[in-house]
Design a protein around this nucleic acid. Structure first.
Length: 453
RNA sequence: GGCGGCGUAGCCGAGUGGCACAGGCAGAGGUCUGCAAAACCUUUCACGCGGGUUCGAUUCCCGCCGCCGCCUCCA
């Protein structure tokens, strides 16, 4: 039985999809007004891994993740750069997607853009106005009236009183709203801003309404899983629920949130200015190392990331690849997958990827031991399991055959000749020469083998 | 101030009411190697502090200290 931690219940609960064998999930995507940072990367890796696991577990999964392509920050940034909003978004979307591709993130089944679903949003807003949950402020827009919905706060476990007490303590209260906690559903356009038509005049949707409208439309009422970063629990996800419920819909049945990523113990974020871009890290390190690092921490916890952590993870990846090379050299690549039960058991327990990886690395050792002892069948079986489970976690092992290179081959051969002649000075000199060219030579029972570092 | 989370070896980081074999990285010693590399074996180092419940607490409860997140845009 698959169990997962539901934010609303604040507990691990049995996962029972609303339609047997099928899972519908929605994960809040990013607002591409700048390059992606490592936090985006973590979120993508976490939910991609959960999605892959559900598929691997036999569910037919429909995975939807949105692109917020209209929003205040996009407008501001486009203005700064003297470009248009669509151009800005298109440019950064490419950056996001290519970074995600390198992380082996599967594309969503559907990736709705906010601007393509305006009509759906205005319909939802109109419903909220009709139901008495929203009100219009002339010249400003439409607001959701929080105190009309008694269940407000159920996800983030806050009461209206608590919210009213702290609201305004840190933020300027908008004078036109009936209560400080009320939030915008529709924002009236100022001159020069991109705008869409609506029953309340030209304007654009509020951030929260997008996700409610698009998730309900694409996945239907009562879809199974809604995910996102833990910093979205309040107010974003709370508001999504309010909008859907207020309009008479049943919303997500399970809420999953990934923990934040810390640099030197502090949350990494745009506002703190301590963020590291995903692009930089993926250029400096094997993208699989970042993925491994993310999965070595449980998804709900905060995790530390820095150069040391990334370098360590890269070495761990090297260990996997080294085994793959060994196995390929022995021609043991095809074997049935062995025991996956320990893996499934820990993954079924709220996606415990650190424990799952521990099992994978135990199998790596088993395979190496078997190879050392000449137990080829055993080795092949362990390796097949390693490869299968690593791939399930989105990590592909590499055992590239060294590409043909006459010059390198000649050097390696010359070194071999020197070694045969026991001319160690010469053979070491050649090895140093190769090393300068980024070539690693390993002397194996089958003779010397080389690869690029 | 309100709500929540966390504090496990040198670092990252799982887990558990019953001896702490998690795992990765690093350190030490060894096997293999001409030397390496890779691999394997052995090994050093840890449950923040104080109470309580219990036969037994790192695990459950309370308090304290420290750190972090949310309460505002945020993954």
């Amino acid at each position: 039985m698959l169990r997962l931690y539901d934010t609303a219940m604040r507990a691990k609960v049995d996962f029972v999809p609303s339609v047997e064998g099928r899972v519908s999930m929605y994960v809040c995507g990013a607002t591409p007004y700048d390059v992606p940072h490592l936090g985006h990367g973590r979120k993508e890796v976490v939910f991609d891994t959960i999605r892959r696991y559900l598929v691997w577990r036999g569910y037919a999964v429909k995975y939807v993740s949105n692109v917020t392509d209209i929003e205040d920050k996009i407008i501001a940034r486009a203005h700064e750069e003297g470009t248009t909003e669509p151009e800005l978004v298109a440019r950064f979307e490419v950056t996001f997607r290519s970074a995600f591709d390198r992380l082996n993130i599967l594309p969503p089944d559907d990736e709705p853009r906010a601007t393509e679903w305006i009509e759906e949003m205005t319909r939802l807003i109109a419903q909220l106005v009709a139901n008495g949950h929203a009100y219009v402020v002339e010249g400003q827009g439409v607001y959701f009236q929080v105190d009309t919905l008694p269940s407000y706060g159920s996800l983030s476990h806050r009461t209206l009183d608590e919210l009213l007490e702290s609201a305004g303590a840190r933020v300027d209260v908008d004078e036109r709203k009936r209560a400080p906690v009320d939030f915008a559903l529709w924002k009236t356009a100022k001159p020069g801003e991109p705008a869409w038509d609506s029953p309340w005049g030209l304007g654009r949707p509020g951030w929260h309404i997008e996700c409610s409208a698009m998730s309900l439309k694409l996945l239907g009422d009562g879809f199974d899983i809604h995910g996102g970063g833990s910093d979205l629990v309040f107010p974003h996800h709370e508001n999504e629920i309010a909008q859907a419920v207020g309009a008479g819909h049943e919303f997500a049945r399970y809420w999953l949130h990934n923990g934040m990523l810390n640099v030197d113990g502090q949350k990494m974020s745009k506002s703190l200015g301590n963020f590291v871009t995903l692009v930089d890290v993926l250029e400096q390190y094997d993208p699989r190392a970042f993925r491994l690092l993310v999965l070595q921490t449980h998804y709900r916890r905060g995790m530390e990331v820095g150069e040391k952590e990334l370098a360590d993870a890269e070495k761990a990846i090297g260990r996997l690849d080294a085994l793959a090379r060994r196995v390929r050299a022995d021609g043991l690549e095809s074997a049935p997958v062995g025991d996956i039960t320990p893996f499934r058991d820990v993954m079924d327990d709220d996606f415990d990827t650190p424990a799952a990886l521990a099992y994978v690395f135990e199998l790596v050792r088993d395979a190496n031991v078997a190879l050392d002892e000449g137990l080829q069948d055993t080795a092949a079986a362990s390796f097949a399991t390693v490869r299968e489970l690593a791939a399930e976690l989105g990590i592909e092992l590499r055992a590239e055959a060294p590409e043909a290179d006459a010059e390198i081959d000649a050097l390696v051969e010359a070194r071999e000749a020197a070694r045969r002649a026991k001319d160690w000075a010469e053979s070491d000199r050649i090895r140093d020469e190769l090393s300068r060219r980024g070539i690693v030579v390993e002397d194996t029972p089958r003779g010397p083998e080389w690869r690029r570092e």
